[in-house]
């Protein structure tokens, strides 16, 4: 099914009926997802242990899949990896490790530089370009442990960008970032999405929603309607209950600037945010009663 060559016309991602099992435990169940091309950020939210990281790793071909098909740019994950940028979870590193910022970013060019060769001028230029993009060029000679959490996160984004990816996968990029730095991060992503498709996964609904173009929900199964709207049933199915996700319970952390008309009656909540919309829920809830509704849900 997968052809040999990179095909820029092929869909960025085509996942068909993906199942992942570890022993008797099913992590992903019948997940299907298509991303046609660049231009949008897809947010995948869901509870911890819901299979989000597993999903990203199966797209990268890092873990064996039990059933289904994954193709990226019409290629198998293993072959497509070189076109994918990946920003793993932030807390998995030994920050005492003797490696500089530039050296970390250069590892993104490891394969391209080739065995038995040093990194070329071109590799170094690409790494510096990636550091410029995330605003970290001046820190290139710092040891990775000397940076703050947000700076490190930007370095890992630069590493993903150094190889000129066509598709960017980010695992919990908000971790360790304060609100200001999160805004900065999404500003960078808004630029990048013109050139590449982006998937961001997070367990924190409020933090991602305002900046995503589309939102999917994942808890073993994927709930996605190719839009930013999620039905209440989806959320209940994904999270088990509807409490934490309520768009208006947390939106002030993610204030956008566009007021949004809610639900069928067109009422606005007036908080001025562009949170993800839970259409069914919003329709039922009078705008003025948001706070009560949050409490009720608890």
């Amino acid at each position: 099914m997968n052809s040999k060559e990179f095909d820029s016309n092929a869909p960025v991602l085509d996942v068909q009926h993906l199942w992942v099992r570890y022993d008797a435990h099913t992590v992903l169940e019948d997940v299907s997802l298509q991303i046609a091309g660049p231009g949008e950020i897809l947010g995948i939210i869901g509870p911890n242990g819901g299979g989000k990281t597993t999903f990203l790793k199966s797209i990268l071909g890092l873990i064996p899949i039990s059933k289904g098909e994954i193709s990226v740019f019409g290629l198998s994950p293993e072959k497509a990896r070189q076109y994918i940028g990946y920003v793993p979870q932030y807390n998995k590193y030994d920050y005492d490790f003797p490696i500089s910022v530039l050296e970390v970013v250069l590892t993104g060019r490891l394969k391209r530089a080739g065995l038995f060769h040093r990194y070329s001028k071109e590799d170094k230029a690409a790494a510096m370009q990636a550091l410029e993009t995330v605003g970290m060029a001046e820190f290139k000679d710092k040891q990775i442990g000397e940076l703050s959490g947000g700076q490190r996160q930007r370095v890992f984004i630069a590493r993903a960008l150094s190889n000129d990816p066509k598709f960017l996968l980010m695992d919990e990029p908000n971790t360790g970032l304060d609100t200001f730095m999160q805004d900065e991060l999404y500003r960078i992503l808004a630029d990048l999405k013109k050139e590449m498709a982006i998937i961001v996964i997070s367990h924190d609904v409020g933090a991602v929603s305002a900046h995503m173009d589309k939102i999917a929900c994942m808890n073993r199964r994927l709930f996605f309607h190719d839009s930013k709207e999620m039905s209440r049933e989806d959320f209940i199915a994904a999270y088990g209950c509807s409490i934490d996700l309520v768009a208006h319970g947390v939106p002030h952390r993610v204030l956008g600037t566009h007021p949004y008309a809610h639900g069928a009656d067109g009422s606005t909540c007036g908080c001025g945010s562009t949170p993800l919309v839970i259409s069914d829920l919003a329709a039922e809830t009078p705008a003025a009663g948001q706070k009560d509704e949050t409490k009720e849900a608890k």
């Binding site: 990268l60 990896r81 970390v104 590892t107 993104g108 394969k111 065995l115 038995f116």
Partner: peptide, 22 residues
């Protein structure tokens, strides 16, 4: 000397080394 950058990358982050195709 020959594998310096591969060793460095692998020691720092085995998974990412696989991601870039080594």
């Amino acid at each position: 000397v020959l594998f310096f950058k591969e060793f460095l990358s692998m020691c720092f982050d085995e998974e990412y080394t696989r991601v870039v195709g080594v």
